[in-house]
Structures are given as structure tokens and as C-alpha cells.
Amino acid sequence: MSRVPSPPPPAEMSSGPVAESWCYTQIKVVKFSYMWTINNFSFCREEMGEVIKSSTFSSGANDKLKWCLRVNPKGLDEESKDYLSLYLLLVSCPKSEVRAKFKFSILNAKGEETKAMESQRAYRFVQGKDWGFKKFIRRDFLLDEANGLLPDDKLTLFCEVSVVQDSVNISGQNTMNMVKVPECRLADELGGLWENSRFTDCCLCVAGQEFQAHKAILAARSPVFSAMFEHEMEESKKNRVEINDVEPEVFKEMMCFIYTGKAPNLDKMADDLLAAADKYALERLKVMCEDALCSNLSVENAAEILILADLHSADQLKTQAVDFINYHASDVLETSGWKSMVVSHPHLVAEAYRSLASAQCPFLGPPRKRLKQS
């Protein structure tokens, strides 16, 4: 649940008159999402009104509101027999009622949201009550392989729920002597030191190019640089560091992050930047690179990204790559990247197969709970 924001200063709310007192009302909304995959969808019983329910879910471990999704594969009634019906059901509720908006969509073979439908307002739910769409999607369109909505005969539904909580009022009075504290510009100011090479005390040599930097900042941000300058190493004695395995453009992006906490060109060089972040123990930059690479996972590059993640101990990226390969196994196994990995990294192939087997055979063990970014 997000923290209630402070109200904007009255002088910034309007260029008009300023009242002596004010009130700011925040209506709290808890948002969460749920993904439900139905394997072997074409084998569902086709009687009209037949119901399939998901397991229950909530916004978190401490949330007492429990929900589930309900599907009628062949419609709810005679009117909707040519459609799939989809509903959000409130299973248990400690209150007399709650209000919530919802959005349903289908994830296609690429994991993209399609055929989205959402409620136009927050509906009133009581325990045992459901709301949804009797005519969510035509069955003939859903079952047509050309539309790519049932890869490997799996129907994957994605649901986003927004639950309306209580409202909170914050009130106060205006004073004539309003003090406005300026925003912190530390990142910009440190970035200026790097860009202008002011007050530098060490030189970093990268592929024949020299960059002036500040030992204190490098040591504070990177345990690797800290070790170089702290001990009686040649880098500490000469205040000069030779860097041979990072390209200059990648190095500059890494230094921008060290000084400012930002990497504006990360998406263009996420793979190389991940390697640099791993070498210099820049954990936050490493996770930022993992996130960017996750966003660009595809059938063509899944094997290469899995190898990269394994090489640099990028655990979150590795998990996402394995899950992606499992979901698109029939396509990924035909790529040149996968065939190369079979020869060069057989242990990763074995890991992917083990994960695929456990996903398809849940009876082999208890269900695993899916539970950071600093």
C-alpha cells in the first residue's frame, strides 16, 4: 500500500486566492494483479454453464480479502454459449462490502496482453458476489490457432484489481511565511564533478583513453575500487588504474551511474553493462540491467540471455529466462542460440529441462510459493 502523499503547497495549487485553511483528501486504492494459466484448455468440458475456478489470491499475505477468477468455457447461458465468460469473485471478506475495479486480458504466445476488457467503474462486491463479462471473447476466435491465444493449448488470463480503501483527510492552515525547501541536487552536482573533471585525484585508463576521477567517490560506490585504493596496490601508489576489459562507451555509462545513480543509455548496452556491474560489484546497476534484459526477452535471444545471466550470477534474470524458455519451449528449441547452448553450456540445458519437467508435473513435489530491489 502506498504512503499517503503530503498535500501540495497551496501557493502551487492555483494562481488564484489562497485560503486560510485547507483539506486534502486521499482515497486510498490498493492495486494488484494475478495470472492464471489453464493447461490443455481444449479438453475443458463443453457443457453450457460449466465452471472452472482459479485458486484464491489477494494483494498480499496480510490481506484478508480473498478473490478468485471464474471461467465458463462455453458461456454462462444460452445467450453467451458462443463466448467464454469471465468473472472476478470475492471469496471471503471481513467487511460487509468492498468496491473494486478490474481489468481482464489474455496473454498471447509472446506474453503480450490482448483482448483487454475492464470495468468502467468500481463495482460493489459482497462475499460470494462476482462481476465480469458474460461475453468476454468469442470461442471461435479464441480457438483459432492463427490468433495465437492458446500457445501449446494453454489459456493464460491476466487480471488487474484495484480495491478502494478508506479515504484519509489531511488538513492544515496557511501561513504568510511559507518556506520552500529546494530539491536535493546531489546527483546532478556529483555528475558535474565527473563531467568537468574537477578536483580529480586519479586516472582511469580504458582502451587508450584516459578519464579523470575521484578516488573517494569510486571507493564509496564500488567495493572493488575501494579494495584497489585501500591496500598497497599499484593503483593506490600511482593513482592510476588500467581497465582492459570494458569498452570506453560502456565504461562511461558505468561511471555515470557511479556518480549519479542513473544510467540513461542502459537499454542500448544492458548486456555489456551487466558484465561491468558484476565485475565492479555495483549491485543496483546489475539489477537494473537484469530488468532491462528481462523486458527484451524473446524467442530468438532467450538462450543467449540465459548464458549471460549464468555467467554473471544474475539470479533474477536467470529465473526469468528459464521461465520464458519453459513457456515458449517449442519455439526456443528451434533457435540457433539454443542449439549452440546445447554444445557450449549443457548444464544450462539440463537446468531448463528440470524446470520444465517440474512445471508440467506438479505432483512430483509440493507447490512452490512464489514470493528486491534495493
Rank of each mutant, 00 (worst) to 15 (best):
M1T: 01
M1G: 00
S2E: 10
S2G: 00
S2Y: 07
V4N: 12
V4G: 01
S6C: 05
S6D: 10
P8Q: 07
P8R: 03
P8V: 05
P8Y: 13
P9N: 03
P10M: 11
P10H: 04
E12S: 09
E12L: 06
S14H: 10
S14R: 07
S14L: 13
G16D: 07
G16F: 15
P17M: 04
P17D: 12
V18H: 08
V18N: 07
A19C: 02
S21C: 04
C23V: 07
C23P: 00
Y24D: 12
I27Y: 14
K28L: 11
K28V: 10
V30Y: 12
V30M: 04
K31H: 11
K31Q: 11
K31L: 01
F32E: 11
Y34Q: 10
M35L: 05
W36M: 01
T37A: 10
N40G: 11
F41K: 13
F41A: 07
F43T: 11
C44F: 03
C44Y: 03
R45C: 03
R45A: 04
R45K: 07
M48N: 10
G49K: 02
V51M: 12
V51Y: 03
I52P: 03
K53S: 03
S54W: 00
F57G: 01
S59Y: 12
S59E: 12
A61Q: 08
A61M: 03
N62S: 07
D63N: 06
K64M: 11
L65W: 09
W67H: 00
W67P: 00
W67S: 00
C68I: 07
C68H: 07
L69F: 08
R70D: 07
V71F: 09
V71A: 02
N72Q: 10
P73E: 13
K74G: 08
G75F: 08
L76T: 11
L76K: 07
L76H: 09
D77I: 09
D77W: 10
D77H: 09
E78F: 12
E79Y: 14
K81Q: 13
D82P: 04
Y83D: 05
L84T: 06
S85E: 14
S85M: 15
Y87S: 00
L89Y: 13
L90K: 12
V91H: 07
S92N: 09
C93R: 10
P94F: 11
P94S: 07
P94C: 11
E97D: 13
V98I: 14
A100R: 00
A100E: 00
K101P: 11
K101S: 15
K101Y: 14
F102S: 01
K103S: 15
S105N: 11
S105L: 11
I106Q: 03
N108M: 14
A109Y: 07
A109L: 11
G111V: 09
G111A: 02
E112F: 03
E112C: 11
T114D: 14
T114H: 05
A116D: 11
S119R: 01
S119Q: 00
A122P: 05
R124A: 15
K129N: 10
D130L: 00
D130N: 01
D130T: 15
D130F: 01
W131G: 00
K134D: 14
K134I: 01
K135W: 12
F136S: 07
R139E: 11
R139C: 11
F141Y: 11
D144M: 10
A146G: 04
L149K: 06
L150D: 02
P151D: 09
P151A: 12
D152S: 06
D152M: 07
K154L: 11
L155E: 00
L155G: 13
T156F: 11
T156I: 10
L157M: 13
F158P: 00
F158S: 12
F158Y: 12
C159S: 03
E160L: 05
E160T: 12
V164C: 09
Q165R: 07
I170N: 02
S171P: 04
G172T: 01
Q173C: 03
Q173K: 04
Q173N: 03
T175L: 02
T175V: 01
M176A: 03
N177Y: 04
N177A: 07
M178F: 05
M178A: 06
V179P: 03
K180H: 06
K180C: 04
P182S: 02
P182T: 05
P182Y: 06
E183M: 02
E183G: 02
L186W: 05
L186R: 02
E189W: 11
G191P: 11
G192W: 05
G192D: 08
L193S: 05
L193E: 10
W194R: 06
E195F: 07
N196A: 03
N196M: 13
R198K: 14
D201C: 11
D201G: 10
D201F: 00
C202P: 00
C203N: 14
L204S: 11
V206W: 08
G208A: 15
G208W: 14
Q209V: 15
E210R: 05
F211A: 12
F211L: 10
Q212T: 15
A213M: 11
A213L: 14
H214Q: 09
K215T: 01
K215W: 11
A216M: 08
A216W: 11
L218R: 00
L218A: 00
A220C: 12
A220N: 15
S222I: 13
P223Q: 12
V224K: 15
V224G: 09
A227C: 12
M228F: 14
M228S: 15
F229R: 15
F229C: 14
F229N: 14
H231F: 15
M233Q: 04
M233F: 14
E234N: 15
E235Y: 10
S236M: 07
K237E: 03
K238T: 02
K238F: 03
N239S: 01
R240P: 05
V241T: 08
V246E: 01
E247P: 06
E249G: 04
K252T: 02
E253Q: 09
M255N: 11
M255G: 11
F257E: 05
I258F: 11
I258E: 03
Y259N: 01
Y259M: 07
Y259A: 01
Y259E: 01
K262T: 02
K262D: 03
A263F: 11
A263V: 06
A263M: 06
N265H: 04
D267C: 02
D267R: 07
K268T: 01
D271H: 01
A277T: 07
Y280S: 01
Y280E: 00
Y280G: 00
Y280I: 01
R284G: 02
K286Q: 01
V287A: 04
D291S: 10
L293I: 15
L293N: 15
L297P: 01
A303H: 07
A303P: 06
A303W: 07
E304A: 03
I305N: 02
I307S: 08
L308A: 10
L308K: 03
D310G: 06
L311M: 03
S313G: 02
A314H: 06
A314I: 05
L317M: 12
L317P: 00
K318W: 09
A321H: 00
F324S: 01
N326Y: 07
Y327N: 10
Y327E: 04
H328S: 08
H328C: 11
S330V: 11
S330W: 09
V332K: 00
T335L: 01
T335C: 06
T335R: 09
T335P: 00
S336Y: 08
G337T: 03
V342G: 14
S344Y: 04
H345P: 00
P346A: 03
P346M: 06
P346F: 06
L348D: 00
L348V: 04
A350D: 10
A350N: 12
E351L: 14
E351G: 05
E351H: 06
Y353P: 00
S355K: 02
L356V: 04
L356T: 11
A357Y: 11
A359W: 06
Q360S: 13
Q360E: 15
C361V: 15
C361F: 10
P362N: 15
F363H: 14
F363E: 15
G365T: 12
P367I: 05
K369N: 03
R370K: 15
R370P: 05
Q373Y: 11
